[in-house]
Design a binder for these strands. Structure first.
Length: 556
RNA sequence: GCGCGCGUAGCUCAGUGGAUAGAGCGUUGGCCUCCGGAGCCAAAGGUCGCAGGUUCGAAUCCUGCCGCGCGUGCCA
């Protein structure tokens, strides 16, 4: 990995602060101050240490400032140190530092910030996991873009991530789906359709029926009105596969990828669900009562016990989740993450109970709950109902606003907050979408560099730093320098929206820089410095956009 | 009722102990002889739901209350 330019300063301050205050392990908060006249960087470390050192914060700050001014390793880095307010330390950095950052970022390119995880882990990441009874809709799309982005970010900072899709291809909903397909099949062959109560009304069901008919020939024409058990079984199995193909196609279009698909049905057929329940019974974590088998989740902090096998002998979805999570736990590496919808948050306790009962540390399961996305259109909440068929499909959203805008919007907000996506805004004002703002910064860099190439400008990363820097150059370089920390933080917090926020900041700095500073045609060292700044910005924007699955066009 | 999440600018939302709380959209006013105006600069707009507490310092942590969402099935 590349050493973050800020880390060097941070480490030096930490060492000096420890010496001044006589405290062992000092953590130093170091970041841009609220106001530009307070310099390039600021830290409240002296105030933090005041209590432990039992000294006046300003006194600590003064002593620390003096040591930093005379620090042999920081001579080319820190130009000025001042103590301000109740004990803030404000730093003004030297031109050489800015030149160093620009050169380093430009050299590292898309590798800048990679591998910054402090403790790399093997992580099993499960997301989307919708049952194959219908196409992906807007509700799934948030989890898809979020999970995929988290996966990309975790990998980027150095974790070994396996992405898995749990196919809920078994149970009541699949039976309903199979019966719905059979009804459409019947229509297709001119027989009386038997649409079940609560069946799936969507047109896509007819598409599946058509594909099935093409596969099966006329062998089942007489067996769908009403369908017999064997037909339903086949339709559930094959129909599920065909439906999953459709889902995978949409996900591919949405630039979401998986390493593995894990079928619930295959688990049932291999006897793993029964075995999982038995394992819990053997360990005393499950018991029989009122004709049903119960999982003693209350022993692990859940509010009540849950049924695994109903009194009619059918196993519940929880039984499958037990088997699946025991399977996952055995191969998870260091950690597993489940990305689930808001309506599943009641499961957290149950899933952790599964791990605990299986002898695993429940803290190694992290459940991330996606809050709802609602759509507004014409200033009103768009009512979506599965039954009424008014669900907005991901494919339709992509056709409407494009993959880039859809992915950008869906991860722009924190996953744990419900938000409104205004369709009119996304549609009519797509020209002023924040995604274009960021992409334009990339295109603008490319444009500058194309101009430079046309003028025969040769890059010179080792050119001396310009003596005077424009405020916009300082701001841009400081933002670039912060990237490794931002992306590592986004990974730790599973927070792709922090990458988005960063990209908007970086784009703003680039646009401001563009308007104040020409690159091509300036004096040699100014031109050389700004060339590196431009190259670095282009690469970091492209890298950041890629982490959320958004393209970075050279021209727009 | 209980559990979890959320109340921050007109709207959508950042900000998980630091200085005078930010961005986008919307509103108002400026800026194209230029490496692309999909841009820039400026202005207006706030009891950070309410009330206490913790401390040098609270939008942030704790307690209570109010409001919204979700959950609380031998449904998936």
């Amino acid at each position: 990995m590349t050493t973050a330019p800020l880390t060097i300063i941070q480490t030096a301050i930490a060492a000096e602060a420890a010496a001044v205050a006589g405290v062992a392990d000092v953590t130093v908060e170091l970041g841009p101050p609220a106001r530009p006249e307070h310099g390039d960087l600021a830290t409240p470390v002296a105030m933090t240490l005041a209590k432990a050192a039992k000294r006046n914060p300003r006194e600590i700050a003064e002593a620390l400032a003096e040591r930093l001014r005379t620090h042999p390793d920081l001579a080319d880095t820190i130009a000025e140190v001042e103590v301000a307010g109740p004990g803030f330390l404000n730093l003004r950095l030297a031109p050489a530092w800015f030149a160093g950052v620009a050169g380093m970022v430009a050299r590292s390119g898309a590798e800048f910030g990679r591998g910054g995880a402090e403790h790399p882990e093997r992580i099993l990441l499960e997301f989307v996991s919708t049952n194959p009874t219908g196409p992906i809709h807007i509700g799934h799309a948030r989890g898809a873009s979020y999970g995929d982005s988290v996966g990309r970010i975790l990998s980027f900072v150095g974790h070994a991530v396996t992405r898995e899709y749990y196919i809920n291809d078994y149970g009541r909903q699949m039976e309903l789906f199979a019966a719905s397909v059979a009804a459409r099949y019947a229509e297709l062959v001119g027989a009386e359709p038997h649409m079940p109560e609560g069946g799936y009304p969507g047109e896509y069901v007819a598409d599946i029926a058509e594909k099935l008919r093409a596969e099966l020939g006329d062998a089942y024409d007489g067996r769908v009105s009403p369908p017999d058990a064997e037909t339903l079984e086949l339709f559930a199995r094959r129909g599920g596969v065909l439906m999953l193909d459709v889902i995978r196609e949409t996900l591919g279009r949405f630039r979401v990828s998986f390493d593995a698909f894990f079928s619930e049905r295959s688990m049932h057929e291999a006897g793993l669900v029964t075995a999982g329940v038995q394992r819990l019974r053997d360990s005393g974590d499950a018991y029989e009562s009122e004709g049903a088998v119960w999982f003693r989740t209350s022993g692990y902090g859940d509010e009540k016990d849950r049924v695994l096998v109903r009194s009619d002998g059918d196993s519940t979805y929880l039984a499958a989740d037990v088997a699946y999570h025991l399977d996952k736990a055995a191969r998870m590496g260091d950690r597993m993450i489940d990305v689930l919808g808001a309506d599943h948050h009641g499961y957290i306790g149950r899933l952790k109970a599964v791990l605990a009962a299986g002898g695993f540390d429940p803290d190694r399961l992290e459940v991330l709950i996606m809050q709802l996305v609602s759509l507004t259109e014409s200033g009103e909440a768009k009512r979506m109902s599965k039954r009424a068929g008014t669900i907005v499909l991901l494919d339709d959203l992509i056709d409407d606003i494009g993959v880039d805008a859809a992915r950008f919007f869906l991860v722009e907000r924190s996953h744990d907050t419900a938000f409104d996506l205004d369709l009119d805004l996304a549609r009519e004002q797509s020209q002023e979408n924040p995604v274009y703002y960021v992409q334009y910064a990339h295109a603008r860099c490319c444009s500058i560099l194309a101009k430079a190439e046309g003028e025969g400008v040769v890059r010179d990363p080792s050119a001396p730093a310009p003596a005077d820097l424009d405020p916009s150059e300082r701001a841009l370089a400081l933002t670039l320098a912060a990237w490794p920390r931002v992306v590592a933080d986004a990974a730790d917090r599973r927070a792709p929206h922090r990458v988005v926020a960063y990209l908007k900041d970086l784009a703003r700095d680039l646009h401001a820089f563009y308007h104040r500073c020409r690159v091509v045609g300036e004096s040699p060292e100014v031109q050389a410095f700004r060339m590196e700044l431009t190259v670095g910005t282009r690469d970091v924007v492209r890298c950041g956009l890629d982490l959320i699955g958004v393209t970075a066009p050279d021209r727009m």
